[in-house]
């Protein structure tokens, strides 16, 4: 649960959005603030928060909050 909150915080911080906007349906290019620049900031924030280094394919695939949880499970992070 703590990790889920940590991930939500990463999204809030990186995208500059409200906590309530971070739901599974939050998706890249569909939210006005989640553009290519924000995606770079988001990746940096997630890597910093969880002290991991994502593979490029995972950075490309991280197209929604739900997908982010799925991808991070590969890095031994359970949500």
């Amino acid at each position: 649960m703590a990790k889920l909150e940590q991930l939500k915080t990463a999204f809030v911080t990186a995208l500059g959005i409200e906590d309530s906007e971070v739901t599974d349906s939050l998706a890249y290019s569909e939210h006005a603030k989640w553009d290519s620049t924000a995606h770079m900031v988001l990746i940096a924030e997630i890597e910093s928060q969880f002290e991991i280094m994502l593979d490029t394919d995972d950075i490309i695939d991280m197209s929604s909050f739900a997908k982010a949880k799925e991808i991070l499970a590969k890095y031994e992070l359970e949500f």
Partner: peptide, 10 residues
């Protein structure tokens, strides 16, 4: 640049 920028953005 891909790797370094991910650190510098922070």
């Amino acid at each position: 640049a891909q790797f370094a920028s991910r650190f510098m953005v922070r």
